[in-house]
Design a protein around this nucleic acid. Sequence first.
DNA 1: TTGAAAGCGATACCAG
DNA 2: CTGGTATCGCTTTCAA
Lengths: 344, 344
Amino acid sequence: MVQIPKPPAPSRTAQRPVPTSADVARLAGVSRATVSYVLNNTAAVRISEPTRRRVHEAAKELGYVPHAAARSLRAGHRRMVLMPAPAVPAGPLYSAFIYELQWALHRLDYTVVQYGGVGLAGDEAARAWAELRPVAVLVPGTGLGPEGVALLRRSGARAVVTLGPDAVEGAHALLMDHESVGHCAGAHLYARGRRRIGVVVPEEGGLDVFSRPRLAGVRRALHGTAATVTELPLAYTEESAARLAARWGDLGLDAAFAYNDEYAMLLMRALQDEGVAVPADTAVIGADDLLLGRLLRPRLSTVRIELPSGRDLAELVDRAVRDPGGEPERHKVLGASVVQRDST
Amino acid sequence: MVQIPKPPAPSRTAQRPVPTSADVARLAGVSRATVSYVLNNTAAVRISEPTRRRVHEAAKELGYVPHAAARSLRAGHRRMVLMPAPAVPAGPLYSAFIYELQWALHRLDYTVVQYGGVGLAGDEAARAWAELRPVAVLVPGTGLGPEGVALLRRSGARAVVTLGPDAVEGAHALLMDHESVGHCAGAHLYARGRRRIGVVVPEEGGLDVFSRPRLAGVRRALHGTAATVTELPLAYTEESAARLAARWGDLGLDAAFAYNDEYAMLLMRALQDEGVAVPADTAVIGADDLLLGRLLRPRLSTVRIELPSGRDLAELVDRAVRDPGGEPERHKVLGASVVQRDST
DNA sequence: TTGAAAGCGATACCAG
DNA sequence: CTGGTATCGCTTTCAA
């Protein structure tokens, strides 16, 4: 570090220091306290109109903006809800959910901040979040352990909510169990008389979190029956789909559950190009109920996934913040239901 | 405010206060300065090994986490890059871009924070961002005026970068001109001999930012020719598409540019269901080059859009932060090129 | 090697 | 009605 004490070498670019409330006070000819009162409209104190104007004008002239860190340091109160950005590029469904959630929290006067905790391992991430002293933390996916939760709570977080497959000790949980999606699909295919069922598992990294449970769900649906389950790795490219379709005959499958509608569309097209009739030879079902799935022929059957409304989650957060000592709530929030169209 | 001075009413929930470095110091039997030295591995000062351990143990025992606001308040230095969340739920392309950008900035040791500036108008939003004293601000879309930029810079932001259709005084700009997308499509359709061209404009709110320029681009491409341009409002539903397709004959169009591949797929399917042959009667082209567009028959032509790499933007930010006085850079970063398949 | 103390910027007491 | 001033939690210089 250079040791120039106060004057930070005012280069030609006139990098003048950021104005503080003291600067405003000086320019307006009042004390810093008065500045604070005026700019925050403090009700308990009445300031004369001329003074108010002088302060406001000085503030405007200097382009004064209060320093959030300093303010919350002093006030102690924080209305910041921290939400680590997900570790995967986020699908359309999830994006929309986040967006709605932000709105709802904004209505409740919270400030939502998405924090890019990209390259941080489990508890290290929790530490980084805790440093920001958020009033609540919403954690998507797995990766936060009970210690992490405890750490956050000790650091003043009044609510920790996980959005994922299973609950974590000490935290509220929105249980989004993708296992039920697979179960739904498996049961449906079985009911339609299919017995040799393939399950597409994306090769794309980061999707395991969802695809594993979905696969397990299919297995559970078929458990105790004579039906078989075959795992089918598939990358999201035409070539990969073509390769898979080429060996479809050898696989001897009569149905496929394809992780989601995008993979399902990809697979279905590849099968058709290979001369496999859908649904006659092979039934195909996806998930997410994308509009695009209805555009192919046959129209794609799908598992519709119901995410919780952003408003509901926002209210859970608010409730938890108001009563930090309350029992952790557990909510199953992932509704899965089959929408049968023509591909099964 | 209640006036209880220090003991914050320790209710049964044992809401004990968050540990501070002073608590750690007390437990370890050293001064706060020493705690700071140890926990930050300050090189300029050598602390005895036994002391280090006592401090570390005390910190662990209390679950101490430093207070980010206090720290940066004192240290003055900030490595926070602020990125307001976009006003629209964000498409797949953009999500991926953001994600990549976060990674790249993380590599450069910046912390990326997405701030939900949902319900804030232009300069009010700028104020809110400025309060956080970010070292750089990346603003997607329009909505930030020159005053906003000035405000941010006065508040210490060393770089302001806009990602949008046009540059703003005082800020660096990544010009993402969607006009060129439309131009590309229009020129292509004209070259293929089409003369009565429809342009799908999504009815969904918030997409105007992109759809308007794209429409304008088509107009420009056809300016001075005998070709006509017809605006076609379309909602992202099958019904809306069916309605549009039903009056296709009356419209007398021989081509359509459909904003993006999703709308294009929707329209193309509706047209085919209505008995309109694609591309014989009507050519259809989309944009974004989604994989799914290749699955329909005929395969969908599209305008491929090249976003800048996250790394490039991250480097621009870093450069700007290091040299805050430098001339604002302007980069055209939206490559548009036609990918012709079978629908045109 | 360690400790005392001066702030960073803003707020909220209490006295004038 | 307004102005000192202590304080939030932390870093860092200066002394001991």
